[in-house]
Design a protein around this nucleic acid. Structure first.
Length: 594
RNA sequence: GGGGACGUAGUUCAGUCCGGUUAGAACGCUGGCCUGUCAAGCCAGAGGUCGCGGGUUCGAGUCCCGUCGUCCCCGCCA
């Protein structure tokens, strides 16, 4: 750079700057050499501006410029001038002006790139991740990272304003039972013992309430050693908060305030508050999902009672085994699905665990269906009454356990809503789902487990059911859902020691286990714990939805692949024998697992 | 652990169903020409371990088996 000092970002210069002398630094986005005049598009974080080099103006720098290649780093001095009307580029924010160069320095060169630095490239994601520094030069990716920054910044200002105190909690903490698999960190000073990276700061933020912080928040990394998905990374970021003396409404109103601030700051969109609320039971009934996408209709119909004693064994048999029958009707869409597409949907259903997918297509007055012959006239009549089938409708049926039926039909609903263009992409539909069951029966472990986590308070009016009908106890938990994506979940916590002990007992922890794993919490609850509650919001998912990204990988600077690998750094990797020795570790990895 | 899709020039793909001459295209790259382009244009050129290993065959990018990797989903994710 020598003695040159940058005066401006390329992308922010406008007609008001005409006449100014500037020093710009950035990457060569493109170099158009006409033999005479040369045009360079110079790019930095803020955008692109055109540099003009004329052989008559300055022979020496013109020659230097003709050697430039894409992504070389250069410094340019020159004067901002207006472009003549016919050469204005309306596609560039800086298109009314250009820089007539009078100085050029080459700061660095670049090899030819593995892919173009442009927005809509179609290139293998693995290649993008291997060269993430190049991928992040693409404006969309850079914008995603900036949007994330704005979301974090808006969150901090809002919560600071509301009297929340940001507190850091340890990343090296202890492994606890329940929940996800822990990432473990061996302790050199305590051979044979391990820290665990936190799945969330749950217990410590509750402890901070007992400390009297009253309102805590943290924008914090969390770690879960489970399989990855488009919206799940082994490390992810939560907006974590906890409030003393708060009930559900207090938490919800703070969350609505945060999200309103984030959307205003990061997206320039004013979202209406308060959000709609729906009970868990209703969400499952109408959408087959505890995180329904409410941007479109296509609600499910419950048909169990109609087919309880049906001669159609596929339906009545499933019901006799305790299952249910539900339907998904697509009004007037029969013509948009070919027989092959219908069969393919059946295959999709099977891959999700269904035994099949029944359907009825209405053409005029006629019902076309492979199952219609098994139905009695009464059943057809009831079905018509319930579904109101008309010409051009098509309806899909699933009969199985409630779990399978809801999973299959909710997947199908999203798939078809998407495919048939029923989803308004510009819409942000927020929803609170509340009154979750407290407990869920785990068939593998043959015991009840906490649906949210074991510190979630039961509803007071359901407390008496804890001994008798565990599955019916509702909790004071709530999830916030945006466009069918769970972006946060929280609860009012248990703050009385005896109830907490009872909960541990209910999920099969002995008093001894409870004391060993959670002793510090149980003890703290005995020293004047205030009532409290909180929530954690998934920052990655929120930013994914704001930016319209298809996966949270696109809003994380350095994400991991589905196998948990970072293609840029090569993590995870083997370590030196000496490192293992220091930690008292010996590997026992089967050749096949390597 | 299971289901599905994909893997061929630097990149994105075609070719694979139905085996057969020298594996093509576009973009990118290199060189040349070109004084108002902005996806610059025109001419010429270079560029391939068809993911990897094995098998079938006179012959494999194409068929079979295995394996590795990437993506989506189920399980898992309090």
């Amino acid at each position: 750079m020598g003695d040159w000092k940058r005066t401006d970002y390329c992308g922010v210069l406008r007609a008001k700057d005409i006449g100014r002398s500037v020093v710009l630094m950035g990457w060569v986005q493109s170099n158009r050499d006409h033999g005479g005049v040369i045009f360079i598009d110079l790019r930095d974080r803020e955008g692109i501006i055109q540099i003009v080099l004329n052989p008559q103006t300055n022979r020496e720098i013109h020659e230097k410029a003709s050697a430039l290649r894409d992504e070389w780093v250069i410094a340019v001095t020159g004067r901002i001038t207006s472009r003549s009307p016919e050469t204005v580029n309306p596609n560039l924010p800086t298109g009314e002006i250009e820089v007539v160069a009078d100085g050029l320095r080459i700061l660095n060169t670049s090899k030819p790139l593995p892919f173009l630095i442009e927005n809509d490239i179609r290139v293998d994601e693995l290649l993008r991740l291997k060269h993430r520094y190049l991928d992040l030069r693409r404006p969309h990716m850079k914008d995603n990272i900036v949007t994330r920054h704005k979301a974090v910044s808006a969150t901090r200002s809002y919560l600071n304003r509301e009297g929340f105190i940001e507190v850091e909690t340890p990343y090296l903490t202890r492994s606890t039972p329940e929940g996800a698999r822990d990432f473990l960190v061996p302790s050199r000073l305590n051979p044979g013992e391990f820290y665990a990276l936190p799945q969330s700061p749950q217990l410590l933020k509750q402890t901070l309430m007992i400390s009297g912080l009253d309102r805590y928040y943290q924008i914090v990394r969390c770690f879960r050693d489970e399989d990855l998905r488009a919206d799940r990374q082994p490390e992810f970021t939560q907006i974590d908060l906890e409030m003393s003396y708060a009930d559900e409404n207090d938490i919800m109103s703070v969350v609505e305030g945060i999200l309103k601030a984030i959307f205003e700051e990061a997206k320039g969109v004013d979202i209406p508050v308060p959000f709609k609320r729906m009970k868990h039971e209703e969400a499952m009934l109408r959408y087959g999902s505890d995180k329904p996408d409410t941007r479109f209709g296509l609600e499910l119909d419950e048909l169990t009672e109609i087919f309880r004693d049906s001669g159609f064994q596929v339906f009545s048999g499933a019901i006799k085994k305790g299952g249910i029958v539900k339907a998904l009707k697509l009004p007037g869409k029969a013509g948009e699905l070919s027989r092959k597409e219908i069969d393919d949907l059946g295959e999709t259903a099977k891959s999700l665990g269904a035994k099949g997918l029944a359907w009825i297509r209405v053409s005029g007055d006629e019902w076309q269906s492979p199952i219609i012959k098994f139905m009695s006239d009464k059943e057809k009549e009831d079905l018509q009454k319930r579904l109101g089938l008309g010409d051009g409708d098509i309806v899909f049926f699933a009969a199985d356990t409630a779990y399978i039926v809801n999973m299959v039909l909710s997947h199908l609903r999203l798939e078809l809503g998407e495919r048939l263009g029923m989803i308004d992409r510009g819409r942000f539909d927020f929803l609170w789902v509340e009154d979750f069951p407290l407990l869920d029966f785990d068939h593998t472990e043959k015991r009840y487990v906490a649906m949210h986590h074991p510190f979630t308070s039961p509803k007071e009016e359901d407390l008496h059911l804890l001994d008798t009908e565990k599955g019916k106890v509702r909790s004071r938990a709530y999830d916030v859902v945006l466009n069918g994506v769970e972006i946060g979940g929280g609860s009012i916590r248990i703050f009385q020691k005896d109830i907490q002990e009872k909960l541990f007992h209910t999920i099969g922890l002995t008093a001894e286990q409870a004391r060993e794993k959670f002793g510090f919490l149980l003890e703290a609850l005995e020293f004047g714990a205030p009532p409290h509650g909180g929530i954690a919001l998934g920052l990655d998912r929120i930013v994914m939805l704001i930016t319209g990204a298809n996966s949270i990988r696109d809003v994380i600077a350095f994400p991991k692949t589905q196998k948990g690998v970072c293609p840029l750094t090569g993590a995870p990797s083997g370590v030196e024998q000496s490192q293992l020795l220091e930690l008292g570790l010996k590997l026992d990895v089967k050749e096949k697992d390597k």
